[in-house]
């Protein structure tokens, strides 16, 4: 019953918000973007002031009445101060920290006070996310990373950023809800698979993908070459006087693999993405260079955090419109 009434109301409210405060990556908290209402304590404070007014009348006590008026006036002044604590702040969407679907990601919000007064004790959160508190001093720009749960793969719109402040007196809360046009990115869930959906290997170097699974295996000893990392040196043999040798592993840096969407026929798309994700992580861990082929997209082979990031981003955005 209640829900039946509430749902259209909420929709109306959202539509109204969207008209009043359209999405933008940079917004200044101006008068039309700030709402202000008393908190529970503010209502309690007003109640006490009202009681004192009645008391003042009944005891014909002007001073009690004056105190009641002073409280009322203080409350009204507090409206201005609470408003000021939020007003003028420049809110910008910052960077994003993707996560795997089902886990958490984080979005960066930058708060810039380019005016001459501090903005203290601001509470920020995405709908459903935890609250972060931050204070911004004059001329300062603060970066806040706000975590949010990632429910599904792809671009995740976090909803409206909720900024609230009760400073200075806590009797009023000023808040704003901004659409920061700042989507989060959810990589696919990693799903392990036995079979590596990789094609080819490198023709020049002749590395077979079947060798991959054992690429960390110990292959033998070879004579030490300058530049071999000390952990690869066979110190035991050296101590026994057999000379300086390096342990020889299947060399991971010799070729590259193409992780390929097309290698998993008959598997549904999300599972394919999940498996590819798992393999990207695996290959990265094993220092194996890899490329990625998706329908309509290709990432040239490479290695390193940058490569992993690009591969995962590509997987996350598969099937989504390019922003």
């Amino acid at each position: 019953m209640l829900a039946a009434v509430r749902a259209p109301l909420q929709r109306r409210y959202r539509q109204w918000l969207a008209r009043r405060m359209p999405a933008s990556r940079q917004q200044r908290l101006t008068q039309q973007r700030i709402f202000i209402l008393p908190t529970r304590y503010g209502l309690f404070f007003l109640l006490i002031a009202a009681l004192l007014f009645l008391g003042g009348i009944n005891y014909e006590n002007n001073l009690i009445m004056a105190l009641s008026f002073l409280m009322t006036s203080l409350f009204m002044i507090a409206i201005l101060h609470t408003f000021r604590n939020l007003a003028g702040l420049l809110v910008r969407a910052g960077q994003l920290e993707p996560g795997h679907a089902g886990a958490e990601g984080a979005l960066e919000i930058l708060l810039h006070a380019d005016d001459r007064h501090p903005h203290l004790s601001l509470w920020l959160r995405w709908p459903g996310g935890p609250v972060e508190e931050v204070s911004v001093l004059p001329g300062e720009e603060k970066s806040v990373w706000l975590r949010l749960p990632l429910k599904r793969r792809g671009r995740v719109h976090p909803g409206r950023l909720h900024i609230e402040s009760r400073y200075p007196l806590g009797l009023l809360r000023a808040w704003s809800q901004l659409d920061m046009a700042h989507p989060a990115l959810a990589w696919p869930r990693a799903a392990p698979s036995e079979f590596c959906p990789a094609s080819g290997g490198d023709a020049e170097q002749g590395l077979q993908h079947t060798r991959l699974a054992g690429s960390d295996d110990f292959q033998g000893l070879r004579s030490y070459q300058p530049g071999d990392p000390p952990r690869m040196v066979d110190w035991k043999a050296y101590a026994r006087g057999r000379g300086l040798h390096s342990k020889y592993f299947a060399d991971p840096a010799e070729g590259w693999l193409w992780l390929d969407w097309a290698m998993m026929p008959g598997v549904d798309p999300e599972t394919r993405l999940s498996r590819l994700t798992w393999w990207v992580l695996q290959l990265e861990q094993k220092n194996q260079r890899y490329g990625l082929r998706l329908p309509g997209a290709e990432l040239p082979p490479g290695l390193g955090p940058e490569q992993q990031r690009q591969a995962l981003d590509l997987l996350a955005l598969y099937g989504e419109e390019v922003a």
Partner: peptide, 17 residues
């Protein structure tokens, strides 16, 4: 070059028998 290892640049500590 692509086959260069960190040790090729930084150096390595070796066990002197």
């Amino acid at each position: 070059t692509s086959d260069m290892l960190p040790a090729d640049i930084l150096g390595v500590s070796l066990f002197n028998a």
